[in-house]
């Protein structure tokens, strides 16, 4: 057995390592945001977010990325709505209509967890080949369907966890007053209302940031997205395309676009955080 001194020294060294690990992990977040801020800020202008690409935009001339911003908002908005329309009923079904220990319920939860991990490129690949098979060209609709599939597991699992935390008393009281299961579900939904918005925001954040799914299904367009059966630009793809250009102005715009996307994401995260703490208060 080594002396107490050397053991305590080991303790100190280990602690230093752990602190270093913690700092480098948290630091990476600030490094990412810092670099994008530093590079993107000089190129950010009102023109960027208020105009569509003009002629010669991709060789560094006039224009902005309004088409991509709107495209992304439409895409993420529509698919989030669809994912909620499908996901909320499923979460309710899993929690209220079924016996919690039933094999079906456990298997479904497991499957949704697994689905959550399937990368978007796989969804994109299969959606693309279905679209080719049906003779549909890349369009906003294709993107919406792909991204919906991607976001359903998020909505289902978030709401499922929330519904699990609702007090059993609440469920029992509503049932004992003669409510049907559907009426109980309505009461419980009211109880977890801030949580529903959290799920919506999480899904929206995932949807707006995804590239691999939309790359194959949504295409790209310089026009404002007006029709659902036409290709539409999305913000992450705009960043990707502009960054691969050799022209410095265009690359600069890629940085600025990345900065815009960062702002959107940070806004979403902050809203989620506020809502989550609200739900916590709600519980007391």
């Amino acid at each position: 057995m080594s002396t107490i001194k050397s053991r305590l020294r080991k303790e100190k060294i280990a602690k230093l390592f752990m602190q270093f690990a913690g700092i480098s992990i948290t630091g990476s977040l600030f490094l990412i945001i810092g670099i994008i801020l530093f590079k993107g800020l000089p190129f950010l202008s009102w023109e960027m977010i208020s105009q569509v690409p003009q002629g010669g935009f991709y060789i560094g001339k006039e224009g902005g990325i309004l088409n991509a911003i709107l495209g992304s908002l439409y895409l993420a908005g529509l698919s989030t709505v669809l994912a909620c329309l499908l996901g909320i009923p499923i979460a309710i079904y899993l929690n209220i209509y079924t016996n919690q220990s039933a094999a079906l319920v456990r298997a479904s939860r497991l499957l949704f967890d697994v689905l959550f991990g399937i990368p978007s490129i796989v969804y994109g690949a299969i959606a693309f080949s279905i679209m080719v098979w049906l003779g549909i060209r890349a369009s906003l609709l294709g993107g919406v369907i792909t991204i919906t599939l991607l976001t359903i597991p998020i909505v289902v699992r978030t709401l499922d966890e929330l519904l699990k935390t609702t007090p059993l008393d609440l469920k029992n009281i509503t049932t004992s007053l003669g409510a049907t299961k559907w009426e109980t579900a309505q009461v419980l939904l009211k109880y977890i209302k801030p949580g529903i918005f959290t799920a919506v925001l999480l899904a929206f954040g995932r949807a707006i940031g995804d590239v691999a799914g939309v790359l194959l299904t949504t295409g790209f367009s310089d026009n404002l997205p007006l029709y659902i059966d036409e290709p539409a630009a999305t913000l992450p793809l705009a960043i990707f395309f502009q960054l691969s250009s050799p022209i410095p102005e265009v690359q600069g715009r890629a940085y600025a676009s990345a900065l815009i996307l960062t702002f959107v994401i940070l806004f979403i995260v902050i809203c989620t955080h506020i809502l989550a703490s609200k739900q916590k208060k709600h519980k007391l």
Binding site: T26, I32, H273
Partner: peptide, 22 residues
Amino acid sequence: VLPLMNVLAAIPPVLYGVWGVL
């Protein structure tokens, strides 16, 4: 720190890519 990890999780892949390139 844990909420900061949620921020890191929310950053879209393309921004990680931009960071990687830069």
